[in-house]
Design a protein around this nucleic acid. Structure first.
Lengths: 195, 195
DNA sequence: TCGCATGTCTAGCGGTGCTAGATTTTGCGG
DNA sequence: CCGCAAAATCTAGCACCGCTAGACATGCGA
């Protein structure tokens, strides 16, 4: 019993160790550097150990992505409006900050088509949490529009900003103006906050 | 002289042959299937021939992406509004149709960070053409807003739709409603077209 | 202490992008 | 028409990839 427990605990710790190592490697050197060999070396085990925890490399990336959704959800939740700023804007800026500061993580979550279960099958709770934060941010400017559809639009716009910015497709010096434009368009007739 | 010309012509034809083969392979089986070996087999040459035309696999993907920009520009230019539809809407639908119908091509152009010269260095003309079509579509609803920034917002929204839809992150049955919402938000006070 | 199950590793498979050096093809001067 | 240099092309191989079979070590229960 106790021995079983110890083993399970050690196993869980190593499981987490692998996820963390993969994330760190990706954030430091990009996903191309995350090979099973380098990952194994980093966690100081041999390659087959990875496969006793995950079905394959994809599963590891997926685990990192799901954790990333949790991080994003937390950051969005903690993003509180300052000085009369709308929640819509505070959340948008937090979202874009996450994408900007953790590009590798964002990539695993939303760019690489890792095929998280998503549509079919159960969507990870972390992702639902993150989406719920977006919904909450959009709710005040809903008007008579469909909340979920409006949130999808909000998310799409932010995602477009994030990915095109990262690919250097947009003029960085206009980031602020572009976001202003987006938020005031989304808010429609609603009054827009200053700053 | 004539011999040189013939050789250059044959070389140019083979150059194009490689690009076409790469695009076809990618569209039929996805970019994972585009390996230098399979590509060489498809064009009926050995691998090193590819490297006498392109610096590496990335350069081939880039060439496909640039051609794809040309195709997109042409499709956007040909997208004419029907039945009082706004140009904004006609262009948006053409853009999304392109992304939906040629996902592999779209992927090479805007998702894989192939690092087309883009920001720094000369941007390929095909891309400028495509962006110009977006600008032209946005112009009528500009109001007193900055045209280029507004176009970046328009593009970001479309790109967000395209990529999140492809990754099955958005509810497909709400595609139309989502686009309606986006267009009317962008148009702000302007009157929106029916259908 | 022995036998066994569990855990871990070594070594290897077929694949990748890419390239050095051998080989074939080509076009020209004699 | 022949022989030869040069150009074009291929063969074979490198180091790496994801992944796994089978050898080996470890530590438990009898």
């Amino acid at each position: 019993m106790s021995i079983q427990n110890r083993r399970e605990r050690e196993r869980a710790e190593r499981h987490q160790l692998i996820i963390d190592a993969a994330r760190e490697l990706a954030e430091e050197e990009g996903w191309d550097a995350v090979t099973t060999r380098r990952l194994a070396e980093k966690v100081e085990y041999s390659q087959p150990v990875l496969y006793s925890h995950f079905k394959g490399k994809d599963a590891i990336v997926r685990a990192v992505a799901i954790e990333g959704c949790g991080v994003l959800a937390r950051q969005l939740r903690q993003a509180r409006p300052v000085r009369g700023q709308s929640r819509l804007r505070a959340t948008a800026e937090a979202y874009l900050a996450f994408a900007r500061e953790r590009p590798a993580l964002y990539d695993a979550m939303f760019v690489q088509q890792v095929d998280l279960p998503w549509g079919t099958g159960e969507v990870p709770q972390e992702l639902l949490d993150a989406f719920a934060e977006l919904v909450a941010a959009v709710e005040p400017i809903k008007g008579d529009r469909d909340l979920e559809t409006l949130t999808e639009l909000y998310w799409s716009t932010l995602h477009g900003f994030a990915t095109l910015t990262h690919g250097k497709r947009l003029r960085p010096e206009h980031d602020q103006a572009r976001l202003d434009l987006a938020l005031s368009a989304l808010s429609l007739g609603q009054h827009e906050d200053g700053l």
